[in-house]
């Protein structure tokens, strides 16, 4: 979160411009003036890291949003309507046969590397997974009796889909969405690192790492800080996803469920202990 806030407000308070080249300040170590040091062009690493966060977040958020919406739609429809399920799922399977990153790589190579294209490529790489997860969640919810109950009261398919099933698959959507967010940031970094990302003039974490690899022995801070930024961002997004899932689960607010879950667990343990195995 701190990274997000910092990056959004960056242009207001940053002491150095992220693109300003100061030839006399090349490859300087950490100092009060340049907190994270400077790079081979004398640009401030701290400023660049923060500025890159803006780009990374934009890409991550867009990919997560679009992939989630697309994945949810596809997942809902194919999970609910048996007729289209087979066709859609085979298509998705085909897309999933390629590793997501490779698919994105190929797409970027084909359509060129600007921000929009990267978002498109990453969306296509990640939404099949999303659709898969949502579909299986839908299949599970569909089995629960209230869906049948809604049918018998004459409720239409559309209403059932969006008012009965959708709210009950929110938690996998949220979790998968935040993971996609994190994965998109990683993937963008990876693409840039491979030189297939956004043009090197725009600071992104991947670009910075790629440039830093030549100087890794003489100026390790060049890769440490962008790397650290990626790690903390991805980690905090994953934790955020878990937290959101718990917050959206009505059962976690339910009184008895805790005790129920508890007793289920203990039953297994008992059986084990009756069977003599130490738990």
């Amino acid at each position: 979160m701190i990274i997000l806030v910092a990056s959004v407000t960056s242009s207001v308070w940053l002491p150095h411009s992220p693109t300003l080249i100061e030839p006399d300040q090349r490859l300087q170590g950490l100092s009060l003036q340049h907190w994270f040091g400077t790079d081979n062009f004398g640009r401030d690493v701290f400023a660049r890291t923060i500025a890159a966060a803006k780009v990374s977040f934009f890409i991550g958020a867009s990919v997560a949003l679009i992939a989630t919406v697309m994945g949810t739609l596809v997942g809902l429809l194919s999970g609910y309507f048996k007729k289209i399920d087979f066709l859609v799922m085979r298509l998705i399977d085909g897309m999933m046969a390629f590793p997501a990153l490779l698919l994105a790589l190929a797409l970027v190579a084909a359509i060129g590397g600007n921000i929009t294209n990267i978002i498109i490529a990453l969306t296509f790489a990640f939404f099949p997974q999303m659709a898969r997860v949502i579909r299986s969640a839908v299949l599970k919810v569909k089995q629960i009796q209230f869906v049948e109950a809604a049918k018998t009261t004459g409720t239409g398919s559309g209403t059932i889909l969006f008012f009965y099933i959708l709210p009950n698959v929110v938690s996998p959507i949220i979790v998968q969405g935040t993971f996609t967010f994190a994965k998109a940031i990683l993937a963008e970094a990876a693409l840039s690192f491979l030189g297939l990302g956004i043009s090197p003039t725009i600071p992104t974490w991947g670009n910075m790492l790629q440039e830093a690899q030549n100087y890794i022995t003489i100026a390790p801070w060049l890769c440490i800080f962008p790397g650290l930024a990626i790690v903390t961002t991805v980690l905090s997004l994953n934790i955020l996803g878990d937290g959101l899932r718990d917050a959206f689960d009505p059962h976690s607010r339910m009184k008895r469920s805790g005790a129920q879950r508890l007793s289920n667990k203990t039953k297994r343990e008992t059986i084990n202990s009756i069977g003599g195995r130490t738990v």
Binding site: F146, T152, T153, F163, P250
Partner: peptide, 22 residues
């Protein structure tokens, strides 16, 4: 759809037959 109006159902499990989010 019209017929469904006249035939309704009460289910066994009182919890799972109600949408938990409604």
């Amino acid at each position: 759809h019209q017929l469904r109006r006249d035939i309704q159902m009460v289910f066994q499990d009182p919890f799972s037959s109600l949408n938990p989010r409604m």
